[in-house]
Amino acid sequence: MLSDNKENETQSIRTLSAELSNLSRPDGSAIVAQGDTVVQSAVYGPVEVRPNKELPDKAYFDIVYKPLTGLPGCPEKLRERVIRNTLEATLLVNLHPRKSINLILQEMQNDGGLLACCINSACMALMDAGLAMKCLVAALNAVITTEGDVLLDPSLKQEEEAKACFTFAFESINHEVITSNTQGSYSETEFKKCLEICRSASMKVFDFYRECVQRRFSKEIDR
């Protein structure tokens, strides 16, 4: 499953590829690659909840982020929190009171835009699990280079050399901002420019989601 690939253009995203339901045990799973950044995610839910986590009005949304090596530290915890809050806003957690929805993310390869890839991978896994969501989310990464140019979906090297780095997540209805996280210092106009570029690129991610799901179900009908 491939989307359009124009790697040399600065305003296009790297090749997106994904495989849904690649794991047999979870209720939903997805492995998503954005260029060389790869994240595997799996969803179990709604399942039995631990008594101390039980919420009377909604499902408890638990998320575990596994880094490539070592134990999760402060940066991973921040990432985990951002991913959880982003997806919890889209999930209809009120449909499953006293239950738990568990999402596990495993970083497979990091070549820049890890947070964005995590959010996209998690969203596809939730979609694959068939959990009711009010909208989808697409996350994009962009940097401002030291020359002041905007570079969409950069590699890790470009990210490290950049003046400022942005990650945005948009919802699929009005394409408004759900999540924003930035590094480095930048002006308000630079911020708005990046936001708009990422917003228009988010359409490509939503199209990709649609294509993935269509292909997956058309295969099953063919059989």
Partner: peptide, 19 residues
């Protein structure tokens, strides 16, 4: 920052926010 530049715009999920 004092020079007017932004350093971090942190919105960890939650409901969407119009521009």
């Amino acid at each position: 920052q004092e020079d007017g530049s932004l350093v971090k715009l942190y919105k960890p999920g939650g409901l969407q926010l119009p521009d």
